[in-house]
């Protein structure tokens, strides 16, 4: 855990991506993921199922010749699935050794959220999905739930 924190600290020093978050929607909530982890955003593509995987792992996609795993954020958050539509996207993230895709309802924007606009979440675990939230950021009046990627990827 400590090393991850260090890594995050280091990346924050990089001014070009400092305080930047890619925000996306799941159901009615807005989430944010640090832009440093985001490799690219692609539209939905056919996914090959892999047997014997946790339910939130959708399968494999072919990203220009590289095979990468894809996770369904809705399933990970224990939310009801929704049919994929025009807006459904895969956010390709790189975290530690992994390159992975996250299926989200829709990608919104890149938001700059300075540190003073970021708050710790209420300490009580209000819901299952809460455990994947590290902080809460505010952009104007809107609230963005900032993801804890490490928790999100952990395969308990």
């Amino acid at each position: 855990m400590a090393t991850v924190q260090n890594m995050l600290e280091e990346e924050r020093h990089d001014d070009t991506i400092k305080d930047q978050y890619l925000t996306f929607a799941i159901e009615d909530e807005d989430y944010g993921v640090e832009i440093a982890y985001v490799k690219e955003i692609i539209k939905m593509t056919p996914i090959t199922k892999v047997p014997e995987m946790p339910n939130f792992i959708e399968g494999l996609i072919n990203l220009r010749g590289d095979l990468i795993g894809v996770l369904d954020v809705r399933k990970r958050f224990n939310k009801p699935s929704k049919d994929h539509d025009e807006e459904t996207c895969i956010i390709v993230i790189m975290y530690s050794d992994y390159t992975l895709g996250m299926i989200v309802d829709a990608v919104q924007e890149t938001a700059i959220i300075p540190e003073e606009r970021i708050f710790a979440p209420p300490s009580a675990k209000l819901s299952y999905a809460n455990q994947f939230i590290r902080n809460i950021g505010k952009v104007g009046d809107e609230v963005k739930l900032l993801m804890d990627i490490e928790r999100f990827l952990a395969q308990d």
């Binding site: 056919p46 090959t48 892999v50 047997p51 014997e52 995987m53 792992i57 494999l60 996609i61 072919n62 010749g65 095979l67 990468i68 795993g69 050794d97 992994y98 390159t99 992975l100 990827l153 395969q155």
Partner: peptide
């Protein structure tokens, strides 16, 4: 033969994956 992405735990009965001519993936 391409290895399974590192994130995936080993599945008994699967040794890897491969890309087909049409871009599809086969296990």
């Amino acid at each position: 033969v391409k290895p399974m992405p590192k994130y995936f735990k080993k599945v008994q009965g699967l040794s890897g994956c491969t890309l087909l001519g049409n871009g599809d993936i086969s296990l």
